[in-house]
């Protein structure tokens, strides 16, 4: 784990802003994601986490800032194109092809590979990682349970052999037991060296998964720590539920100093 900071950044985001009309959902967020690293982004709803992912992958055209993948600028490209470069988003609420079979969902995941040889191999690897899906190959995706749907969404994302996988709210709407299985799958991916960016409202879950955590509030990164740092519970509650909090943290938020130019946290070691 200690080598994480020395590896080159795979995904670099600088000063990214995302706006919907006049609403600025993300205001100048920077982050760097290194090879085989797992970065968690947490924050209350409305904090701009999902918009951040949308802006990075081009689902929404960013209002400003830059994104690069393996040192190639991909900011401003549409999501159809960033997928081809190897940046894949597993979206919030899964967005499966509900009326199509599990297998068709997976095959569509490898759409950008065309008719390459890799496809059957990748299908095999993904089904190995998610044996439930292999058993339910012919079932319609919409009839799977919530947890299986989430796994299918992740599996579909892996089908194009991405460089970076971004997962939005993997635990949303799932029962605790099911969350367990999804988390195990993500852990296994991480162990295999996949570079992950995970957005999660459930802080404690994110802590068990990620190497580092970014906390977002009102469209900016208000703090970042390594995951094993003891998180200041009260401050977290404040970030989520507002209220009497130390004004220091807030002010930090506004000067945008929480970017990733110095990604290592100063608190843990």
């Amino acid at each position: 784990m200690t080598t994480a900071t020395e590896r080159p950044a795979v995904l670099k985001v600088e000063d990214l802003s995302v706006a919907y009309g006049a609403v600025r959902a993300v205001r100048g967020v920077s982050l760097a994601l290194r090879q085989a690293e797992c970065l968690g982004v947490v924050g209350a709803n409305g904090a701009g986490k999902t918009s951040l992912l949308a802006g990075i992958c081009g689902l929404v055209r960013p209002a400003g800032g830059s994104v690069s993948l393996d040192d190639a600028a991909i900011g401003g490209l549409k999501v159809e194109e960033t997928v081809r470069r190897g940046l894949v988003l597993v979206p919030e609420r899964r967005q499966l092809f509900a009326s199509m079979s599990v297998r068709d969902n997976l095959l569509l995941g490898s759409y950008v590979l065309g008719r390459e040889r890799k496809v059957p191999q990748q299908l095999e690897r993904v089904e190995e990682l998610f044996p439930t899906l292999a058993r339910r190959r012919e079932q319609r995706a919409g009839t799977l349970s919530g947890g299986e749907q989430q796994m299918l969404a992740i599996a579909r994302g892996l089908m194009s052999t991405p460089r970076v996988l971004m997962v939005d709210e993997p635990s949303l709407g799932l029962a605790p037991v099911v969350v367990d299985a999804v988390v195990d799958a993500l852990r296994e991916l991480r162990r295999q060296g996949m570079t992950l960016l995970i957005v999660e409202q459930n802080v404690r879950l994110a802590m068990t998964l990620a190497d580092r955590l970014l906390v977002m509030e009102q469209g900016v990164v208000v703090r970042q720590t390594s995951a094993d740092a003891v998180l200041d519970e009260e401050a977290l509650v404040a970030a989520y539920l507002g209220g009497p909090t130390d004004p220091k943290a807030e002010r930090h938020a506004d000067d945008g100093g929480a970017g990733s130019r110095e990604p290592s946290s100063d608190r843990s070691r």
Binding site: C57, L59, K78, V79, E80, V83, R84, V88, L89, P91, Q95, L96, F97, A98, S99, M100, L108, G109, Y111, V112, R156, M159, S160
Partner: peptide
Amino acid sequence: VNPTAARLVGIR
């Protein structure tokens, strides 16, 4: 079925 998902898997 799902145009957003279609874009996410790289379908133009």
